[in-house]
Design a binder for these strands. Structure first.
Length: 1117
RNA sequence: GGGCGGUUAGCUCAGUUGGUUAGAGCGCUUGCUCGACACGCAAGAGGUCACUGGUUCAAAUCCAGUAUCGCCCACCA
C-alpha cells in the first residue's frame, strides 16, 4: 500500500480499501484477537432494517467504534455485535405506503403474500444499512451479525414469552388500549405522542347535570357520571342509576363520587365513557359500571351508537351536536386547547378502546423472587449495578419506572413475531345440560358430604320430581351421572327408564378431613384445597378429562349430566371464565337445568414454541410489540436460549478442540444457521463437550467432498460416508450426487453468552431510554438474573445549526454518507464527537465537518513531512534520548497527553480526549516541534517515535487516515491491533522552560509585527539567558526571525522569565495594553493589601499572585 | 401541573473538587509562497460569563430567587 503521499488527503480514494483490509483480517472478531482478560462488549442498537443511516446512527456508530477500537488497542477482547431490527410497525407502514402507491393494499395481498413482500423489501434495505455502517468505519463483528427475525432470536422471543406466561407475568385480558385506526393495531403507552390542538369544549344538558366534553359523540356510550364526594348539588344522585336522554338516544348512567373530579371544572359532573377513555375505564372497574363499546376498530361507530352507527367519529360528532342543538341540549361551546394523542409512527389520532390483548404485568410479584418486574428493573439501577451516563437520566428512568403500567404487547399488524399461543376450538356440536342433585341428607344436616355417599331426602325426591316435570327426557340422547347415590337417584327420577352412565369423574369435590363438617368450616378450605382431600383444580382436571372423552365420542349429541355443586363450579370455570376465588367457590349451584355449549367453552390454549400436536390448533393472529424482541437484544444475539444440539463422535470433537477449523456433515439444511451457538454432544454417551458457534455455512456437493479435510478424515471413501449417513438417517435417500449442507465450525469452550454477557456498554440516544433501555433491563434481569450491560452511555440528538431536529419534512437533514464522501469519514466522526457532551444535543453543520477535514489533512501533512524528512520510516521501540530542550519538552508533552487521553477515554470523556489530541497535534507538534526539527535536525528517532504512537492514540477517533499513514511504516501489522502506548516520564522543568522559550519567540514576533517589520527582515537582537543554552537561543532567533548579535546598546529591552532581550526597534505598549496592565496591577495590589486574602489563601496562591504582580510591573517599564 | 437541561466572544461550544489576567474551533482584521500543509503560517481584535441577591479572602463555578429558550413526563373531562 506504500506510495507517495499526495499534498492533500483524499479520503474517498482510500477508505473502502482500508475497510476491506480490516474486514479480511478477521480482527473485528474477538475470537481472532490474542487478547486476554475481561472482554469489552457493545451490542449495536439495531437500526430499522428498512431505514437508511441518518446522523443519529452515524454518531452512535462513531462513539461505539471509538470505544471498541480503544479497548481493542488496550488489549481487551473487543466485541461489537451488529444487527438490524425488523421494526414491526415502522416497516409495515413503509411497505403499506408503497403498496398504496401501486394501488394495492395488504388486505388485497393477504397475509402470506404481504409478508413475502416485506421480506423482499427488508432484504434490499438491510444491504444498504450494512454498507453504510461499513462506510462509517465500524469495526463490528459481521460474523455475529443478527437480525431480530433470525431463527435463534425468534426462538428467544417465544422462550421469553412462554416463561413469562408460565410465571403469570403475561396474561390475556380485556382492557382499554391505545388503538391506532390507521395501523389497525394497539400501541404501548409510550408509543403514543401528544400534540396540542385547538378543540371545542361542548357543554351538554345531561339529565339533571350539565357536562362538558370535547368528544360529544362518546357520550352515547356513557354508563356513569362522576361527581366530587363533597359536591352538595349532586349528593342526592350518588348511587342512583339515571335514564338520560341525549337527543333521543337513551343511556343509563350510574352516578358515583370520586375525589379525582374537580368540582370547579365545568359544572362539576363528568360523563364517564368506560370503553373509550383510560381514566373512565378505571372508574368503571372501581364502581362496577357497565362497559359499552361504541367505536369499532375501524374508527366507526358500532350499533351501540344507535342512529349514528357506521359513521366515523368526526361525522358522528357533527350530526350528534346538531341533533343536540335541535333538542336544545347544547348549553354552550367554548374554544379549548387539549392534547390530542397521536400514533408515533403515522401521526393518526389514537382511539382508546376496549379490547382483549396480551399484557406484561409489571406489578405482579415474580414467583420465587418476591419482586415485581418493576422493582427488579428499578433496583438494578438504584443499587449502582448499572451506571447511567450522564447520571441525571437515572432520575428520568426511576420516574418512568414508577409510573409504568402493564405493557400491552400484542399488535394486530402482520409484520412481527407471532404470539406463541395456540387456541383450539372444538366443533363437537355437543349440547351439555347440567343438573345438580336435589336435597341430600347431608344438605339437610348442613354438612359437607364430599365423597361420602349420602342419599336424597324426601324433600330431595320431591324436588327432583318437580324438575322432571319441567323437562322432556327424550330431549337428551345420553345421560351421565356422578356415581354417588344422591346424583344417581336424582338422575333416575329425572330420566326414568333411560340408560344412565355413571362416571366417577363427575363426583363432588373430596372434602377429605372436612367431610361432614359445617359449610362454615369447609368454606375456609375451598380456595386452598381440602386437607387429605382435593382442590378444585383437581376437580377441574378430572372433569376436563371427562369432557375430552365425550367430545370425541359423542359428537352432535345432547347430553345430560347429573352431578354436584362442585362440578357446577368447575363448569362455570371452564365454560364461563369464573375464577378459583373463595367467594365464588363458596356459592352453591341452583337446582334445575343449566346449559353449556361444549364448542363455546373457553378455548383450549397452548403456549409454547411450536404448534402443539393434534388437529384444530390455530395460532393467535397477533404479533408482538417490536420492543419485546428488542428487549432481549443483548443476549438473544449471543445465542440465548441455546437449544440446538450437535452430535459428534469423540475423535471429531478432539480435533475441533485443538482449535482447527473443521467441517463435518449435517443433513438437514434448516437445522442450523450462521451465528448460532450449539451444544456439542457425544452421540454415544450423550455427554456434552461444550459449545461451538457456527461462523460459516457452505454448501458442498457430496461428490465434491474432500475427505482429507479435517473432520472428514475418518471416512475412507464416499461410500463409507454414505453408509454411515444411511445408518443414522435411514429414511434419507443418499446418493453420490446429493446436495448436502456442510458446515464450518469454530470451537469455543464457552458459549458467546457466557463469554460476552453482560455486555459492557450500551451506547444509545436518550430518546429511547424508555422504549428500549428500560425494557432491556427489565427483561434481562427477569430472564437471566443478570444486568444487560454495565454502563449506559447516552448521546444527544443531532440538530441543525438553528437547533431544530433534522427531519425529511423540514429538509434540513444532513446525509452522513454524503458528508463522508465530501469530507471523509474521519472528519465526520470528529465533528460528531468533539464538542459534544453526553446527553446534550449537538448542532452539526457543514462548516464544522470541514473544519475537521482540515485537521485530518493537517495530520496527513505532519506525517508526510516526517516520512519525507527521516531516513527510513521504521518503528522505534523505546523512548529515544532527548538531546535538546525541545526534545525533552515534546516527549514530556506526549507522555502527558497519552496518559490523559487514556484516562479520559476510559472514563467516557471522549470530547475532552479529542480536544487534547487536537491541541497536541496541531499546536504543539506541528506548530513548534516540527518547526524546531527543521532547525535542530537529526530528530528521526523522536519524530517517528511520537508519530507512531500518536497514530495509535488517534486511531479510535480517525481510524482510516491513521491506518493508512501507519502503512507507511515498514510493517506488515495493522494499526488496528497494535497496543496502546506505554507512557514515559514527564519532565516538568523542561515544560516550564520551553514555555518561556515560546513566550520569548512570541514576544519577538509581536514586537516585529506591531512595528510593521516585514517578516523577511531579520533585525538585530541581543539575548541573554540564565536558562537557555546558546543552541536554544539560536532556535529562538530562527523561529522569531531575527539576527542574534553579541551586544546591542540602544534598543527596546524586554524580559521573559529569566531571559533578558534587546531588539533594535522600539514599540511602546498600546494604550489598551497599558490600561489593562494598570487595571490588573491595581486590582492585584488591592488583593495583596487585603489581610483577609494574605492570611486565608494558601501561601502558594499568595506567592503566585505576588510573582504575577512583579511580572506585570516589569512589563510596564 | 411535575421534572430535567441550557443561557460564557459574531456563530458553535469547553471550562472537573471555587484559586494564573475566562479558553478552543469557525468567522473577522492585518501580514505572509521560511525544506509538510492556503484544508496553510504568523500576529491581532473581540466577553458586565442571562439577571438579582447571598456565602467566601476569592464565584462563570456554591446557595436562593427571577427571566428566557428547550426537552421529558402527567388521566383534568
Amino acid at each position: 500500500m506504500k506510495q507517495e503521499l499526495e499534498k492533500a488527503y483524499e479520503p474517498q480514494k482510500y477508505e473502502d480499501d482500508i475497510y476491506a483490509t480490516w474486514e479480511e483480517s478477521g480482527f473485528f472478531n474477538p475470537d481472532n484477537l490474542k487478547a486476554k482478560g475481561k472482554p469489552f462488549v457493545i451490542s449495536m442498537p439495531p437500526p430499522n432494517a428498512t431505514g437508511i443511516l441518518h446522523l443519529g446512527h452515524a454518531s452512535a456508530l462513531a462513539y461505539e467504534d471509538l470505544m471498541i477500537r480503544y479497548h481493542r488497542l488496550k488489549g481487551r477482547k473487543a466485541l461489537w455485535v451488529p444487527g438490524t431490527d425488523h421494526a414491526a410497525i415502522a416497516t409495515q407502514t413503509k411497505v403499506e405506503k408503497i403498496l398504496a402507491k401501486e394501488g394495492s393494499s395488504r388486505e388485497e395481498l393477504g397475509r402470506e403474500k404481504f409478508l413475502a413482500r416485506v421480506r423482499d423489501y427488508v432484504a434490499g434495505s438491510q444491504d444498504t444499512i450494512r454498507n453504510q455502517t461499513r462506510k462509517m468505519g465500524s469495526s463490528c463483528d459481521w460474523s455475529r451479525e443478527r437480525y431480530t427475525f433470525d431463527k435463534g432470536l425468534s426462538q428467544a422471543v417465544s422462550e421469553a414469552f412462554v416463561r413469562m406466561y408460565n410465571d403469570g407475568l403475561i396474561e390475556r385480558d380485556y382492557r382499554i388500549v391505545n388503538w391506532c385506526p390507521r395501523c389497525a393495531s394497539t400501541l404501548a403507552d409510550d408509543e403514543v405522542e401528544y400534540e396540542e390542538q385547538d378543540a371545542k369544549l361542548y357543554y351538554i344538558k345531561y339529565g339533571p347535570f350539565t357536562i362538558a366534553t370535547t368528544r360529544p359523540e362518546t357520550k352515547l356510550a356513557d354508563t356513569g357520571v362522576a361527581v366530587h364526594p363533597s359536591d352538595k348539588k349532586y349528593k342526592k344522585y350518588i348511587g342512583q342509576t339515571l335514564d338520560i336522554d341525549l337527543a333521543g338516544h337513551n343511556i343509563k348512567v350510574k352516578v358515583f363520587s370520586d375525589k379525582a373530579v374537580d368540582p370547579k371544572f365545568g359544572s362539576g359532573a363528568v360523563g364517564v365513557t368506560p370503553a373509550h377513555s383510560a381514566v373512565d375505564f378505571e372508574f368503571a372497574q372501581k364502581n362496577g359500571l357497565e362497559i359499552i363499546k361504541l367505536i369499532g376498530e375501524d374508527g366507526k361507530l358500532l350499533s351501540s351508537g344507535g342512529k349514528y352507527k357506521g359513521m366515523d367519529t368526526l361525522s358522528a360528532r357533527k350530526v350528534f351536536v346538531k341533533d343536540l342543538e335541535a333538542a336544545d341540549q347544547i348549553v354552550k361551546v367554548e374554544d379549548y386547547k387539549n392534547n390530542l394523542s397521536i400514533c408515533y409512527r403515522c401521526d393518526t389520532p389514537i382511539e382508546p378502546l376496549t379490547s382483549e390483548q396480551w399484557f406484561v404485568r409489571v406489578n405482579k410479584k415474580i414467583p420465587g423472587r418476591n419482586k415485581t418486574l418493576k422493582q427488579l428493573a428499578t433496583q438494578t439501577v438504584k443499587s449502582g449495578e448499572i451506571k447511567i451516563l450522564p447520571d441525571r437520566f437515572a432520575k428520568t428512568y426511576y420516574h418512568w419506572m414508577d409510573n409504568l403500567h402493564d405493557w400491552c404487547i400484542s399488535r394486530q399488524i402482520w409484520w412481527g413475531h407471532r404470539i406463541p399461543v395456540w387456541y383450539k376450538k372444538s366443533d363437537t356440536d355437543i349440547k351439555l345440560t347440567l343438573f345438580r342433585h336435589t336435597q341430600s341428607e347431608a344438605n339437610a344436616l348442613k354438612v359437607g358430604a364430599g365423597h361420602k355417599d349420602y342419599k336424597l331426602t324426601e324433600k330431595g325426591v320431591e324436588q327432583a320430581k318437580k324438575i322432571a316435570g319441567e323437562i322432556n327426557p327424550d330431549d337428551f340422547d345420553i345421560i351421565f351421572s356422578s356415581d354417588l347415590s344422591r346424583a344417581k337417584q336424582t338422575a333416575e327420577i329425572l330420566f326414568p327408564g333411560k340408560k344412565i352412565i355413571s362416571d366417577k369423574r363427575l363426583r363432588e369435590v373430596d372434602f377429605g378431613d372436612m367431610t361432614d363438617k359445617s359449610s362454615l368450616m369447609i368454606n375456609k378450605y375451598r380456595a386452598k384445597g381440602f386437607p387429605n382431600g382435593e382442590t378444585y383444580q383437581d376437580v377441574r382436571d378430572r372433569v376436563q378429562l371427562f369432557l375430552d372423552d365425550i367430545s370425541s365420542k359423542y359428537k352432535n349429541k345432547k347430553i345430560a349430566v347429573v352431578s354436584h355443586s362442585g362440578v357446577w363450579k368447575v363448569f362455570e370455570i371452564i365454560f364461563n371464565g369464573a375464577d378459583f376465588t373463595e367467594e365464588f367457590l363458596s356459592t352453591h349451584a341452583a337446582l334445575g337445568a343449566k346449559e353449556y355449549d361444549l364448542d363455546k367453552k373457553s378455548e383450549e390454549i397452548y403456549v409454547g414454541h411450536d404448534k402443539p400436536k393434534g388437529k384444530g390448533w390455530i395460532q393467535d393472529e397477533d404479533t408482538l410489540d417490536t420492543w419485546f424482541s428488542s428487549a432481549l437484544w443483548t443476549f438473544s444475539t449471543l445465542g440465548w436460549p441455546i437449544k440446538n444440539k450437535i452430535g459428534f463422535n469423540k475423535s471429531l470433537v478432539e480435533k475441533v478442540k485443538n482449535g482447527e477449523k473443521t467441517i463435518t456433515h449435517r443433513l438437514s439444511e434448516k437445522e442450523l444457521s450462521v451465528g448460532e451457538t450449539c451444544i456439542v454432544e457425544n452421540t454415544q454417551t450423550k455427554k456434552s463437550f461444550g459449545f461451538i458457534r457456527i461462523t460459516e455455512v457452505k454448501k458442498i456437493k457430496m461428490k465434491d467432498l474432500d475427505l482429507s479435510e479435517p473432520g472428514q478424515g475418518e471416512y475412507k471413501s464416499i461410500e463409507e460416508f454414505r453408509k454411515r449417513i444411511a445408518k443414522y438417517y435411514p429414511d434419507m435417500d443418499v446418493t453420490i450426487n446429493s446436495d448436502l449442507w456442510v458446515y464450518r465450525y469454530i470451537y469455543s469452550k464457552k458459549s458467546d453468552l457466557d463469554t460476552f454477557h453482560p455486555t459492557t456498554v450500551m451506547e444509545t440516544g436518550y430518546d429511547i431510554i424508555f422504549f428500549w433501555v428500560a425494557r432491556m433491563i427489565l427483561m434481562t434481569e427477569y430472564l437471566l438474573d443478570q444486568k444487560p450491560f454495565e454502563t449506559v452511555y447516552l448521546h444527544g440528538m443531532i440538530r441543525d445549526k438553528a437547533g431544530k431536529k433534522m427531519s425529511k419534512s423540514l429538509g434540513n437533514g444532513i446525509d452522513p454518507i454524503e458528508m463522508s464522501q465530501k469530507f471523509g469519514t474521519d472528519a465526520l466522526r470528529l465533528s460528531l464527537i468533539i464538542g459534544s457532551a453526553p446527553g446534550s444535543d449537538l448542532k452539526l453543520y457543514e462548516e464544522k465537518i470541514a473544519g475537521y477535514r482540515n485537521f485530518v489533512n493537517k495530520l496527513w501533512n505532519i506525517s508526510r513531512f516526517i516520512f519525507s524528512s527521516v531516513d527510513k520510516p521504521k518503528s522505534i521501540k523505546t523512548e529515544p534520548k532527548a538531546k535538546t530542550l525541545a526534545d525533552k519538552w515534546i516527549l514530556s508533552e506526549f507522555n502527558n497527553l497519552a496518559k490523559e487521553v487514556d484516562v479520559d477515554l476510559a472514563e467516557f470523556r471522549f470530547s475532552a480526549a479529542g480536544e487534547k489530541l487536537y491541541d497536541f497535534t496541531w499546536n504543539k507538534l506541528a506548530d513548534w516541534y516540527l518547526e524546531i526539527s527543521k532547525i535542530e535536525k537529526n530528530k528521526d528517532q523522536i519524530l517517528l517515535y511520537i508519530l507512531e504512537r500518536l497514530l495509535i492514540l488517534w486511531h479510535p477517533f480517525t481510524p482510516f487516515v491513521t491506518e493508512l499513514l501507519w502503512q507507511q511504516f515498514d510493517t506488515k501489522e495493522m494499526l488496528m491491533v497494535k497496543s496502546w502506548p506505554k507512557t514515559g516520564k514527564v519532565d516538568k522543568k523542561s515544560l516550564e522552560n520551553f514555555s518561556d522559550l515560546q513566550k520569548l519567540v512570541i514576544k519577538i514576533r509581536n514586537l516585529k509585527a506591531e512595528n510593521k517589520i516585514p517578516p523577511k527582515d531579520l533585525p538585530n537582537c541581543y539575548l541573554e539567558s540564565k536558562i537557555f543554552s546558546k543552541e536554544d537561543l539560536a532556535v529562538v532567533a530562527q523561529l522569531s526571525r531575527v539576527t542574534l548579535v553579541d551586544s546591542l546598546p540602544k534598543a527596546k529591552s524586554f524580559t521573559i522569565g529569566k531571559t533578558k532581550g534587546k531588539i533594535n526597534l522600539v514599540k511602546e505598549l498600546s494604550d489598551k495594553e497599558r490600561s489593562d496592565l494598570e487595571k490588573y496591577i491595581k486590582a492585584t495590589e488591592a488583593k495583596l493589601n487585603n489581610k483577609n486574602f494574605t492570611d486565608n489563601a494558601p501561601p502558594q496562591v499568595v506567592a503566585d499572585t505576588k510573582k504575577r504582580l512583579t511580572e506585570a510591573k516589569n512589563k510596564l517599564k
